[in-house]
Amino acid sequence: MSATLAFDLLLSTALVWSAWRTITANRLDQAVVMFIVFGLLMTLAWCRLRAPDIALAEAAIGAGLTGALLLDALGALRKGKTARRRQ
């Protein structure tokens, strides 16, 4: 019992920490990676709440697709910046 409680406390602390890091990170790439970490921790939280259906959707859409979209946007932003610097 105490082991699961310790895990839950650790998980909720990590969730709040990653959410905080996502919005306060100075660099965009850090924020995107922390957002993906937050999505994966959220998946674990849904599993702990015994909602595996939502956990699957969160892992696939929240962390996977949205993370890939954000990383792609980041790459496009960076490419635009270097192109402007060259001009």
């Binding site: 699957l56 696939a60 859409i61």
Partner: peptide, 20 residues
């Protein structure tokens, strides 16, 4: 647990991977 939404998202992720 499973279903159309999750399956669709996994297949979409494969297409994104192929694109990247």
């Amino acid at each position: 647990p499973g279903g159309a939404f999750q399956a669709g998202a996994v297949l979409a992720a494969a297409m994104v991977l192929l694109h990247l």
